[in-house]
């Protein structure tokens, strides 16, 4: 049982030992880091393909239709067909765009989405970098993402794109604040910014029990942060057509989608880490628990998408500034006065 639970750690140990015979220690560390990064990237990419498939199928079932079911068994190869289609499409660069920025924007979006994975503990000890400021890192990286949207919208030389990127800037800057404030409660409970110690602190009760309000605020702000329905104003296909990426086509277009799905799953992973006990769970190996929880959060996202219409831009701002931020402040207050002493007495 222990072997299965720690299979990745054991694998790492074996590689490190073998390499240790003929390589100096810093080089071994670097090689190990590169291998883990490649594994996490592979995990994110495979997950992304699964996400697209699951999203389309689940949406299909929720909407009383079948979803993709033609390519391969149960339509499983649909995503491969789509990827081939997008890769072989003509790469259209509209005239009068700012070429440099136009090319760079999708890369910024995808890169920032991937960077978050560095501090997500996928299982016991399975983390690329256990930063002591892990949460701060997540928040700062996700605010860089808006830069990609702004670059795309500005460089496209299109009014819809401009409207979309302006919406993106306003929305993401506004929702950053309740997002941070909702996490502060957890940081107060654990006294640490490290994702690993946050997960370890949830060995008993998950933080969603300690911080229900914080979880709701976090979830809403995070959905807004990753621009998914009902906060998909940035794309708003029925209003501003596709928003910031209206002029993109082919692989660059696909990169935006890639970034969107990766950050959606990263958000689910962070929610799992912060509130749902991370990899903690009985019987099953920790990394399986982690995947199950993250997928559960993602399916809730799909469910929301199939249910809710889009907010208007002023209602969106009103929700952030008039509802979520005051609630988050109340949450911090309650946490400081009641929950922290209680939590410490339980922990003892």
């Amino acid at each position: 049982m222990d072997v299965i639970n720690n299979i990745f750690l054991i694998g790492r140990q074996i590689i490190a030992t073998v390499l240790g015979f003929f390589l100096p220690l810093p080089v071994v560390d670097a090689v190990i880091a590169i291998i883990s990064m490649a594994l996490v990237l592979g995990f994110a990419a495979v997950t992304m393909m699964g996400q697209v498939y699951v999203e389309r199928r689940v949406l299909g079932f929720m909407q009383d239709r079948k979803g993709p079911n033609r390519v391969g068994p149960f339509g499983l190869l649909q995503i491969i067909a789509d990827a081939i289609k997008l890769l072989t499409k003509e790469d259209i660069m509209p005239s009068r765009v700012d070429r440099m920025v136009f090319r760079l924007a999708p890369i910024v979006v995808v890169a920032t989405a991937l960077l978050i994975w560095a501090v997500v503990p996928l299982g016991r000890g399975m983390i690329i970098a256990d930063l002591n400021i892990g949460i701060l890192y997540v928040i700062s990286i996700s605010s860089v993402g808006v830069l990609g949207f702004l670059m795309a919208g500005w460089s496209s030389n299109n009014k819809y794109a401009l409207l979309g990127s302006m919406r993106a800037a306003a929305q993401m800057v506004s929702y950053e604040i309740p997002l941070v404030l909702s996490i502060i409660g957890i940081i107060m409970l654990t006294g640490s910014l490290s994702t690993v110690s946050i997960v370890n602190a949830q060995a008993g009760l998950w933080f969603v029990i300690w911080q229900p309000l914080g979880f709701v605020i976090y979830f809403i702000s995070a959905v807004a942060e990753i621009n998914r329905s009902p906060f998909d104003l940035v794309e708003g296909e029925s209003e501003i057509v596709a928003g910031y990426f209206i002029e993109y086509s082919g692989m660059r277009f696909a990169l935006f989608y890639l970034g969107e799905y990766i950050s959606a799953f990263a958000m689910s992973a962070i929610a799992t880490t912060l509130f749902l006990g991370g990899w903690q769970g009985p019987i099953l190996p920790p990394y399986i628990w982690f995947v199950i929880k993250a997928w559960a959060v993602f399916i809730v996202l799909i469910w929301i998408r199939a249910t809710l219409p889009r907010l208007r831009v002023d209602q969106l701002m009103g929700l952030a500034w008039k509802v979520l931020i005051p609630l988050a402040l109340i949450n911090i207050f309650v946490t400081a006065v009641v929950l922290v002493p209680l939590f410490q007495s339980v922990a003892k």
Binding site: M62, Q63, D64, R65, D232, E237, R305, R310
Partner: peptide, 17 residues
Amino acid sequence: YVSDIGAMHTPLLYAFR
């Protein structure tokens, strides 16, 4: 209408049934 204001076609398909 419901899909126009961004509800991802679910009510539309319910109505179309």
